[in-house]
Structures are given as structure tokens and as C-alpha cells.
Design a protein around this nucleic acid. Structure first.
Lengths: 147, 147
DNA sequence: CAAAAATAATACTAAAAAGTATTTATTTGA
DNA sequence: TCAAATAAATACTTTTTAGTATTATTTTTG
């Protein structure tokens, strides 16, 4: 499962993709208030995303946060990789150590084969799902969908 | 991702399914040593599984742990549910609160629809994969597979 | 029946994740 | 140019997860 930090990040990115039109910034208090996330905690998270160029930010009056690149180019995979690390996708299901696919370097675990199909679908889901697609899904059902 | 506790539990169950023939018990020191898990920590975990009747145990000399039911009847789903809780499967991907499927009671989140397919496959995987099947997969490749 | 071998139970410590508080730096606009 | 508004940085606290240590209980066997 995703960490709280990561969930907050994804929701903030969807929010920004949806409400920050052409480069205009939204202040962290508004974002945190609307999404019901502790403000300073969200601050820390977004600062991290700014460093990774996924977000951009400006200080001072009328400052705030906005997407750092087109919403089409931000996938859930990018976000999870940045926050929870690539291990989230690569870790072995039942062991603390990584699990190799082939027997040459290291052994796979006992469920490696069975799990790999689902893992591939997961990877597919995370890398194919962009902020833009998510926002597209919401079009027309805004008030029916939880943010 | 599964908790360490849960990973340890799964590996111990595979181990017991594989090495404890017809009801004979294996001591916790041997299990923990072979699987490289801290002994007292594994003890706590296995005691929990005994309470849930997934394992059985006997004290005293020649005592130890063994499966509490046929390996065919123990699925990964059962184990994860017992250790990490059913929330592991039901939780919303991007929110801390649960996420309803229909709009009648509560709103689904913005990725609910897209994620539900993968989630179903995950559920399928966890509930269809039994300890018996995993052991079956290992047959003939024991020394090539990590436990 | 006593001693030894094992699990069971309980209480404690350490590390990581989540969250809070405070201070600093930057930008804008009056 | 100064004050206000904002993000950035840093340090701290709380909660949860992971792991350790100790003691009690049960069972077998000499």
C-alpha cells in the first residue's frame, strides 16, 4: 500500500492539475484546506516534488504551487517513485531482500512466478495512469468524485 | 506493500507446509534460524496465527509449530487478512478513507474506476494462491528457490 | 516427581513514518 | 523601501512498526 505521504502527493497533483489553469499558482493553505491535509506536512511533501521538477513554486504574495510539467507527462509511477522509492515496485512480495527473475544472479522467491503477472499489471497501471487521464475521468462527474 | 510481519508469516507457513510432514511439529528456533528471522519476533507472529487456528502448536520437548489446517485451505488472502487486516485489500489507493464503489453511499475517488480492475486481479491472486500451490510450484526446483 | 525443553505471555526498546512548530528567505506591491 | 504574504528550511513530537528481553507455563522423559 502507498504511504500517506504518497497519497497526499497524488491528491495534491490531481488538485493542481484540475484547478491551476495555465501556470497560475495556488497557495498551500488553500490546497491543504480543500484536501484536508495538515498544512505544514503537505508543505514538506510539495517541496520535495518541486525539487524533482514535478511541481513549480513561487514565493511571495500570489505565490504558491503549480504543475512543473504538463499533466500528460506526470504518471502515478513518477510520483510513487519519487516519494516511496522505486523499491515499491521492485521489492519481493514475501522477502525483505530483492528477488531476481532468473536463477543466474540470486534466486527468485517461491511466489515470484505467480506474482509476476499481477505485478506487471500493477506496473502498467501506475505508469499508464497520468494526472491528465485522471482529470479526464472526472470531467462531468466532479461533484460525485472524492478528492 | 506487505508488512515485515506479514512477509515473515507467509514464509513461515510455506516452510511449515513444506517440512512438517503429517502433523509433526518444528521448533521455533529451527524455523527462525532457517528463514533468518529474529526468533522472539517470529514467536509473537506465530502465536497470533495459532490463535486464528491457521497454525497449531504444542509445548514441551519435541513441541513446536505445524499447520493448523490443510495447506490447500490456507490462502495468502487469509494470512494477510489476519496480520495486516482486511483494510489491506479494501483501502482507497489515494485517500486515507474508504472509497465506495457506487455514488449512493459516499463517493469513489478519482482513480477508483481505473484501479478497480487491477485491484480485482490482486484480490484474485491473493485468494487463489494457497500454501499448497506455492509448495507445488517449488517441487523440483527446491535449491533454486529462495525461502 | 523433578528437570529440561519447548511455547506463551508480557513488558520493554529502537527505528521509521507521520505530523507539528518555529524560524528564515523571498517576492510583491503599497 | 518597507510590510505583508508566501514558500523553504529546520528542528521537534507523536504514533506505529519492528524487534528484544524476561518471565511464566506446559509437556515430556528420566
Amino acid at each position: 500500500m502507498l504511504s500517506n505521504t504518497c497519497k497526499y502527493a497524488i491528491r495534491a497533483l490531481i488538485y493542481l492539475g484540475k484547478f491551476s489553469e495555465n501556470g497560475e499558482k495556488i497557495g498551500i493553505k488553500k490546497i491543504a484546506g480543500d484536501l484536508d491535509i495538515p498544512t505544514p506536512f503537505l508543505g514538506k511533501i510539495l517541496q520535495n516534488l518541486v525539487k524533482q521538477k514535478i511541481l513549480s513554486s513561487t514565493k511571495g504574495p500570489n505565490g504558491g504551487f503549480g504543475l512543473g510539467k504538463p499533466a500528460e507527462e506526470i504518471s502515478l509511477y513518477d510520483i510513487v517513485k519519487t516519494i516511496d522509492g522505486e523499491d515499491f515496485f521492485k521489492n519481493c512480495l514475501i522477502s525483505l531482500e530483492p528477488c531476481s527473475t532468473n536463477h543466474a544472479n540470486g534466486k527468485p522467491c517461491a511466489v515470484h512466478g505467480r506474482f509476476s503477472e499481477v505485478r506487471n499489471e500493477l506496473m502498467e497501471f501506475y505508469s499508464q495512469t497520468s494526472i491528465a487521464k485522471i482529470i479526464g475521468d472526472m470531467k462531468g462527474h466532479e461533484e460525485l468524485i472524492k478528492l
